[in-house]
Every structure is written in structure tokens, then in C-alpha cells.
Amino acid sequence: THHSTMSPEEFISRIMEAEPPEIYLMEDLKKPFTEASMMMSLTNLADKELVLMISWAKKIPGFLELSLTDQIHLLKCCWLEILMLGLMWRSVDHPGKLIFSPDFKLNREEGQCVEGIMEIFDMLLAATSRFRELKLQREEYVCLKAMILLNSNLCTSSPQTAEELESRNKLLRLLDSVIDALVWAISKLGLSTQQQTLRLGHLTMLLSHIRHVSNKGMDHLSTMKRKNVVLVYDLLLEMLDANTSS
């Protein structure tokens, strides 16, 4: 079924099915952490998650209909935001903690060992608290994640060729489907019409905070790489270089 003919319920069910499996770091964590050991664990986990993220994006109805150039651009723009939203979702029921994976959980204070990361941890914890206050539902979470992906490059590129224009139009229609799905998910919560509108506003406004933390995180990781605190390799290196060079 094409996404344009899917009901919002069907669309959400497809993106729920696309959710990546739980991922484990699978390392013997030696505590207390050093700056290098914590950065290495964080980047190892990010690299594993990135591979699953590509698989997730491919399962979003309509994503593979976009041009390959658009697919690459979207993923390279949003990967850290997607990782951070996933982290917030895992951490939403654990105030004061960041649940990077079931076998890699950090307290705010543990961020002290990495220069400059505490500020990012605090921003992540603050956004997570906001999601906790809003009692974010799983259906809403999957819609927000798809919105981040599809919205990530909308204002940084303008289509030049007919093919690019076609892909952009497809992207806009796909975003319509995701917004419809989020509106539908909110409508199931038994709120008044006004409360539903407010909730939509509050949830989407949080996306600008996630973009902000992601930019901070990207700068931090680039600095750590430049200072040789951590060796960044594979897919993560490709994504990071893509961001730092653009």
C-alpha cells in the first residue's frame, strides 16, 4: 500500500514495525570511566545504532521512493537528533539517568569525566523531563522520530533539477502523512480539541531543542576526535565528516 492511501492508523502501525530492536553495548565497562573510555563506549554504541538507523529509515513508508541523494542528505543531517530522541525515549521513566542501552546507563555526574559533556547531558536530561511531563506516548514518539528524519534537510537545500523537484514533492507529501499520523495519535488520548492542538504544538516545539542539543553534540564529538581523545571510525566517521565539512 502506498503511504498516500494509508490511514494514519496504518501509517503508525508501519512505523511502529520499523522500530529498531533494543541494542546492547556488550562491553565490560570499567568504572570509574576515563574520558577516553567513556567516549569510546559512546561512539561504539552510536556506530552500532547508526547501522540499524539506516535499516529503520528504509522501512518508513515512502522513504525509498525519494531520490538516493535525498535519502543520503536526510540521514546525514539528522542522525544525531535521531540517536538523541531514542536516548530520551529510553530514559523517560528514569529521572536523572541517561539510558544509552540496557547495559550502559549513566548518571548526570558521570559526565564529569569528559570535558564539555556535562552541559550536553544536562540538555538531554532537561528535554527528557519535558517528555516525561507531557507523558509522551509510543505512537507519538515514532511519529516525532520520522518527522525529524523527513524535516532535517528541508530548509538547507533547494531543488534544481526536475528529479530533485519530484523527490522534494514526494518528501513534502510524506511529511503530510507523518503529521496526519501524529495528529491522529494525539486524538486518541481523550483530550479536548484545544488540548490536542496545544499538545501538538508542545511536542513539535521540542524538536527545535533536540536540533540544538544535536548541534552541540556534533561540535563536541568533532572536538574529541580532533584532540584524539577518541578514534572515530566506520559509519560514524562518515556521518561526522559529512557534518563537519558541510
Binding site: 535499516s55 538516493l68 562518515e238 556521518m239
Partner: peptide, 24 residues
């Protein structure tokens, strides 16, 4: 450098029909 060359792994994962889990 072309976009595909710059993003070799990403490009491969997007084009490959094999599960990225297997590739990882």
C-alpha cells in the same frame, strides 16, 4: 568527491537489500 564516494558505507547500506544487521 561525489556524494556516493563521500558516503560509501551509507550509500551501500541504503542500496543493499541485505539486512544491515548482517552487514554489521
Amino acid at each position: 568527491t561525489s556524494l556516493k564516494e563521500k558516503h560509501k558505507i551509507l550509500h551501500q547500506l541504503l542500496q543493499n537489500s541485505t539486512s544491515p544487521v548482517d552487514l554489521a
